[in-house]
Amino acid sequence: MPEGLLMSITVFVLAMFVGFEVITKVPPTLHTPLMSGANAISGIAIIGALLVTGRGNQYIDLIVGVVAVVFATINVVGGFLVTDRMLHMFKKKTTEK
């Protein structure tokens, strides 16, 4: 097995454990914002999309890449904004009451 792949699998397994550890503690009240925040993070695929589009050596890269950039950006920008909107509503009450 190539060494790089082995490294990546290590990173994958450890990150999964970190994810489980960090997230089990989230209270039910915040499940929706957590989900939409996590959802925005999954837009990290944008990095892959940028690399594909930017290497610009092929027509096909460009077409597939740009669509991927648009999709991922919708996910990232929309996801973080909508999460912020929701969390803003939660915050309001702590200051008012």
Binding site: G4, L5, S8, V11, F12, A15, M16, F17, V18, G19, F20, V22, I23, T24, L34, M35, A38, N39, I41, S42, I44, A45, I47, G48, L51, V52
Partner: peptide, 22 residues
């Protein structure tokens, strides 16, 4: 992330994967 060999995708992706599974 595995495809483009970039760890940040793997890390962020697995965090989300874990969150969704929980």
């Amino acid at each position: 992330g595995f495809v483009v060999k970039n760890d940040i995708l793997i890390i962020a992706g697995s965090l989300v994967g874990a969150a969704g599974l929980i």
